[in-house]
Structures are given as C-alpha cells and as structure tokens.
Design a protein around this nucleic acid. Sequence first.
RNA 1: GUGAGAGUAGCUCAAUCGGUAGAGCGCCGGACUGUGGCUCCGGAUGUUGCGGGUUCGAUCCCCGUCUCUCACCCCA
Length: 436
Amino acid sequence: MIRAIKGTRDLLPPDTELWNRVEAVARAVFRTYNYGEIRTPVFEETQLFARGVGEETDIVSKEMYTFEDRDGGSLTLRPEATASVVRAYIQHRLWERPGLTRLYYMGPMFRRERPQKGRYRQFYQIGAEAIGSESPLVDAEMLQMLADILEGAGLKQYELRLNSIGDPACRPAYLERLRAELGKVGEQLCGDCRRRAATNPLRVLDCKIPADQPIIERLPRVTDCLCAACREHFETLQAVLRQRGMAYTVVPRMVRGLDYYTRTTFEFVHHGLGAQNAVLGGGRYDGLSEALGGPKAPGIGFSIGADRFVLSLEESGVTPPAVRPDVYMVWLPAGEAPAADPAFRQADEMARLLRAAGLVVELPPEARKIGRALEQAGKLNARYALIIGENELREGRYQLKDLEQREARQLSRQELLEFFENHKDTKAQRHEEGIP
RNA sequence: GUGAGAGUAGCUCAAUCGGUAGAGCGCCGGACUGUGGCUCCGGAUGUUGCGGGUUCGAUCCCCGUCUCUCACCCCA
C-alpha cells in the first residue's frame, strides 16, 4: 500500500472544518488591519534561504528539502515564508506603493526534521509581514492583531513572551560579553551547552537542563546590554502594551533560531502542546531586505504554526459544528433505469432548486427502500428528508419529513421553496457559527 | 541525527505460557411489498507493518527494517 510519506499527513473531514474556521478567522482579522494576501511559490532558489534565513541555522544547514533542477540550478522547498515575502517586496518594488506594506500568507512549509507532536515535515503556517517602518507602534499593532486572531478562534490560556535581542550596534558586544562569561563557567555546564558556547552562545540561554539553570541565571541578559536606540524601542513597545492592558512577560532568555531577527522577538505559547509549546513566533528583521540585495526596509513579521494552533484549540475544547445535510432526498424508483425514472428525475430537479436556495442537499446515487433510506438520513444527521415516490408523483406533492420533530407534511414544489424561505433555521445556524 | 515505547479488520481493542485470529463500532444485505438513528439474523474485509532467523510449526521468541507516538536537538 502506498502511504503518505513520513512527517506528512492527510487532513480529513470533520477535522478540516476546524482548519477552515481558523483560516476564516485569520483572514477576517487580517482584513480589519488592512493586510492583503500574498501567495509566493512553494519553491525558490536555494540561495534565497541560505542568505535570508542564515547559512549557519539548523534550518538551512540540515533541514531543507533541496534538489537539483534539470538545468542544474539548486531549488529548495520553502522552510518558511518571510524570505520569500521580502524577495517579492524587492522584486516588485513594493515600497513604491503608498503606505506601509502589510501582507499575509498561509500555506505549507517544509522542513526535514524528526516528526513529533506539533511538528511535521510538511506543516502549515499562517503569517504576516509589515515592511517599511521600524516604529515600535507597528510591533504593538501586530501583537494586538495576533491576540485578535487567537481569541477570535476561541483560544484561551495563552501567554505572550517578549524579548529584544538588540541590533548590529549592540548585539556583537553582548555576544562578546556572553562568550567571556561562558568561558569562565564552561566546565560546570552540560555537554550541549559547552558545545553551544562555542558555536551559538545565545542558545545556551535556552538550555532546559535543571543543573545548568543557576549558572545561566547569572549570565548577562540581553535586555541589560541594549544600546540606547534599542532600549528606547523596546520600552516604547512595552509602554503601549501596558497602556492597552495587554499581558506579556519579558523573557530575556528567549532565543529565536533564524539569523535575521533584530530587536523585538516574541512568541505565544500554549500549555498542552507538549514540548513544542510555541503556537506562533516572530520578530523584527530590520536588516533582511538589505541582506537580500534590496533597499533598507525594516520589517516585522510572525508565523502561526497552524497545526499547533489547531491542536491547542482541540486541547481547549473548541470543536466546530458538524456539517450536516439540510435535506436528504429519498427517491423510490418505479423500476426503470435511473435516467428515465420519474422519481429520480423529480428528486434531481428538486435537489437543484434547493441547492440554488443555499441548502445542503444529499441526493443518494442509489435507490433504496424507504426504511433504509431514512435510516441513512438519520445516520447522516440530516434535518429533513424529502420523499419522492409513486404516491407523491401521482399527487404532485412531495412529503417533507422533519427528522427532528418527527412530523411530515405534503408540499407542492412551490410550497417547498416557500417553506425553506420561511424556515431558514438550519442555514441561519451555520452563518451564526462564523463560517462566512 | 540520538533515545524510549508501540504496530493484530476501516476504527477501538482482545487472544494464543509458540499450534496459522476474535469482539464491539462501522459497512453491505435480509426480516420490513412506502416511513428513520432500535431489534434480530446473515455477509464481506486481515498475507497479525515488512524481511530474515530459531522451530515440526511464529501473530507470539530473536535480529534487521519501515511507520507511528513521545522526548532530545531545533523550531511554527
């Protein structure tokens, strides 16, 4: 049997209902903040990610799906979307359009990691980028937008973690200091940390080994080593959040894995996700455009791990309403071939009219005895059954059976359409439940 | 890439101290010649993940491999 390859999966109904809801909520919120959708290719020149994400990151050095094209070029399935969005920003000279560039995207990303809870090789991200301003007010607005999305989808109990990791003016000095301090305590740390101290000292801060914690606590904090400009930027952001009454925790030890981040970084975590507890992550990338050969274009963005978001919602008990047919068509054949059978022809015609009126109609492709047919209708949780058989054809009125009230009425075609016009409860219900 | 646990019907699981598998749900049909989620009866579906070894004989023991799950690493 051919199976979906490792780390990929099929999303099936009814689960996809929740996915659709999440995406619908996100789109609706993006619209209110005046973000427009961008769709970029799922594969790009390998160089884009090498230069954008960073040659030394784990993503680029060991997790990309890279392959040679027939003409010899090196292509890569996108491991994230920010590099592509900034590439498009440069390619199409989007800075020449009026106002701040605000773009959102959603779609699959690819990283070859060992799968685990909330982590897949093909996973989905819903993200946005605001490019063209370094104002902390943009950062603050983006965090507000995120809260709107999480809450709009029904997520409770999340936590916003915030940090500032400085810029090219102050981070090198901080790293220097950190290295020096790590040199002094080197022998007391775990093996992983000693390795990190040399390769990527920031990662030491992220260590989870209990024995290392007291040592790490005494290391210098990024937030204490920011230059004046970065410090002011971070303080302004926090002032707006406080003014707004938005809860957050400054976590100076929070480190992000992409090289392009500067200043503000953040993540929203949800407990119940296991080890991968970040539902989303993001931050500022003031130097990315220039690193990709574009103009100076400070920006900030985030990415929601849709798979994890859906998981968190499930953990929070959020379940979308089950999709159910409004009308199940029961047709009782007179024994002729379906195309010629008058019952089928009437059922087919009625189904068309009811669908045109916006109803969900199930027309079974095989005729069954009435008992079986109603049993099916019941199992599918249909609201009504419309019965068309010999008697109905003779009298020109169909039997509409309310499967919840267990009552039936005989209605002509016209009366049926009027009935559903006046009883929009099933349709109305769907609209209230937030599916646009 | 490393470690641990698990793979038996579409789903959830049982079983054999080694003697080639069952239940519930679901699916299909009948009882029921036009009135439902019930009941009863019947039916289909498994090379017991795959490959090898031990054995008269392996779903069970051993080795390998694949996949899944969780964790490390890393990240969304």
